[in-house]
Amino acid sequence: MALLAQQVQDCHFITASGRLDADDCRQLKQIISNATAKQVRHVLVDCERINHVTTEALRIVLSMTTHAEVTGINLLFHHVNTKFQEIIDKTGLDSVLHIVLSLKEAYQYCKQNT
Protein backbone atom coordinates (compact mmCIF):
# COMPACT_ATOMS: atom_id res chain seq x y z
CA MET A 1 0.00 0.00 0.00
CA ALA A 2 1.00 3.54 -0.45
CA LEU A 3 0.65 6.25 2.16
CA LEU A 4 1.11 9.80 1.04
CA ALA A 5 1.38 12.36 3.82
CA GLN A 6 1.36 16.12 3.64
CA GLN A 7 1.39 18.63 6.48
CA VAL A 8 -0.50 21.87 6.13
CA GLN A 9 -0.44 24.10 9.21
CA ASP A 10 -1.72 22.02 12.13
CA CYS A 11 -3.06 19.15 9.97
CA HIS A 12 -1.53 16.04 8.47
CA PHE A 13 -3.40 14.88 5.36
CA ILE A 14 -2.83 11.23 4.56
CA THR A 15 -4.02 9.40 1.48
CA ALA A 16 -4.05 5.61 1.74
CA SER A 17 -4.43 3.34 -1.25
CA GLY A 18 -4.35 -0.39 -1.94
CA ARG A 19 -3.91 -3.05 0.73
CA LEU A 20 -3.65 -1.84 4.32
CA ASP A 21 -1.35 -4.14 6.29
CA ALA A 22 0.61 -3.99 9.54
CA ASP A 23 3.64 -2.27 7.97
CA ASP A 24 1.44 0.50 6.58
CA CYS A 25 -0.21 0.96 9.96
CA ARG A 26 3.18 1.18 11.63
CA GLN A 27 4.06 3.91 9.13
CA LEU A 28 0.80 5.67 9.97
CA LYS A 29 1.58 5.27 13.68
CA GLN A 30 4.96 6.93 13.06
CA ILE A 31 3.23 9.82 11.30
CA ILE A 32 1.02 10.27 14.38
CA SER A 33 4.09 10.21 16.64
CA ASN A 34 5.74 12.84 14.45
CA ALA A 35 2.55 14.89 14.59
CA THR A 36 2.67 14.76 18.38
CA ALA A 37 6.29 15.93 18.38
CA LYS A 38 5.45 18.79 16.01
CA GLN A 39 2.30 19.66 17.99
CA VAL A 40 0.10 18.92 14.98
CA ARG A 41 -3.45 18.56 16.26
CA HIS A 42 -5.23 16.82 13.38
CA VAL A 43 -4.50 13.75 11.27
CA LEU A 44 -7.00 13.19 8.45
CA VAL A 45 -6.85 9.86 6.60
CA ASP A 46 -8.49 9.51 3.18
CA CYS A 47 -9.64 5.87 2.90
CA GLU A 48 -11.36 5.99 -0.48
CA ARG A 49 -8.73 3.85 -2.24
CA ILE A 50 -8.21 1.13 0.39
CA ASN A 51 -9.19 -2.21 -1.12
CA HIS A 52 -8.15 -4.67 1.63
CA VAL A 53 -7.34 -4.58 5.34
CA THR A 54 -5.57 -7.26 7.37
CA THR A 55 -6.64 -8.24 10.88
CA GLU A 56 -3.30 -7.13 12.33
CA ALA A 57 -3.72 -3.75 10.63
CA LEU A 58 -7.09 -3.32 12.32
CA ARG A 59 -5.52 -4.02 15.72
CA ILE A 60 -2.88 -1.38 15.08
CA VAL A 61 -5.52 1.12 13.91
CA LEU A 62 -7.36 0.58 17.21
CA SER A 63 -4.12 1.18 19.13
CA MET A 64 -3.37 4.29 17.07
CA THR A 65 -6.81 5.71 17.78
CA THR A 66 -6.31 5.30 21.52
CA HIS A 67 -2.80 6.80 21.33
CA ALA A 68 -4.06 9.77 19.29
CA GLU A 69 -6.82 10.50 21.81
CA VAL A 70 -4.41 10.33 24.76
CA THR A 71 -1.97 12.72 23.07
CA GLY A 72 -4.69 15.19 22.03
CA ILE A 73 -4.70 14.49 18.30
CA ASN A 74 -7.91 14.34 16.29
CA LEU A 75 -7.54 11.23 14.12
CA LEU A 76 -10.29 11.15 11.52
CA PHE A 77 -10.98 8.78 8.66
CA HIS A 78 -12.92 10.13 5.68
CA HIS A 79 -14.12 8.91 2.30
CA VAL A 80 -14.27 5.37 3.72
CA ASN A 81 -15.29 3.13 0.83
CA THR A 82 -18.09 0.58 1.19
CA LYS A 83 -15.81 -2.46 1.41
CA PHE A 84 -13.66 -0.95 4.16
CA GLN A 85 -16.77 0.33 6.00
CA GLU A 86 -18.20 -3.21 6.06
CA ILE A 87 -15.01 -4.48 7.71
CA ILE A 88 -15.08 -1.65 10.24
CA ASP A 89 -18.74 -2.39 11.06
CA LYS A 90 -18.18 -6.17 11.40
CA THR A 91 -15.28 -5.68 13.81
CA GLY A 92 -17.06 -3.08 15.92
CA LEU A 93 -14.47 -0.41 15.18
CA ASP A 94 -17.24 1.89 14.01
CA SER A 95 -17.87 2.71 17.67
CA VAL A 96 -14.22 3.67 18.23
CA LEU A 97 -13.00 5.30 15.02
CA HIS A 98 -13.92 8.85 14.11
CA ILE A 99 -15.35 8.45 10.61
CA VAL A 100 -16.86 11.24 8.54
CA LEU A 101 -18.07 11.27 4.97
CA SER A 102 -15.88 13.92 3.41
CA LEU A 103 -12.75 16.00 3.84
CA LYS A 104 -14.99 19.02 4.35
CA GLU A 105 -16.69 17.33 7.33
CA ALA A 106 -13.30 16.28 8.71
CA TYR A 107 -12.08 19.87 8.48
CA GLN A 108 -15.23 21.17 10.18
CA TYR A 109 -14.86 18.62 12.97
CA CYS A 110 -11.25 19.66 13.53
CA LYS A 111 -12.18 23.33 13.50
CA GLN A 112 -14.80 22.73 16.19
CA ASN A 113 -12.44 20.60 18.30
CA THR A 114 -9.36 22.79 18.34
Rank of each mutant, 00 (worst) to 15 (best):
M1F: 03
M1V: 08
A2I: 15
L3R: 04
L4K: 06
L4C: 09
L4N: 13
L4D: 14
Q6I: 10
Q6E: 15
Q6K: 15
C11E: 05
F13S: 10
F13D: 04
I14R: 02
T15L: 04
A16R: 00
A16T: 06
S17V: 10
G18R: 07
G18E: 10
G18I: 09
R19Y: 15
L20K: 07
D21C: 09
A22G: 02
A22S: 13
D23E: 09
D24F: 09
C25A: 05
R26W: 10
L28C: 08
L28G: 08
K29E: 04
Q30D: 12
I32L: 11
N34H: 09
N34S: 12
A35M: 07
T36A: 10
A37Y: 03
K38T: 05
Q39R: 14
H42V: 01
H42K: 04
V43F: 06
V43K: 12
V43Q: 08
L44E: 02
L44G: 07
E48Y: 01
E48G: 06
I50T: 10
I50Y: 14
I50V: 11
N51Q: 12
T55Q: 14
L58I: 10
L58A: 02
I60K: 03
I60D: 03
V61F: 15
M64Q: 14
T66Y: 13
T66R: 15
H67V: 01
V70C: 00
V70M: 15
T71A: 08
N74H: 14
L75S: 11
F77T: 06
H78W: 00
H79R: 15
H79V: 08
V80D: 13
K83T: 11
F84Y: 14
E86C: 01
T91P: 11
G92P: 03
G92Q: 11
H98R: 06
I99R: 01
V100P: 01
L101E: 02
S102M: 06
S102C: 09
K104M: 03
A106W: 02
A106D: 11
A106C: 11
Y107Q: 15
Y107H: 04
Q108M: 05
Q108T: 07
K111R: 11
Q112L: 13
N113A: 09
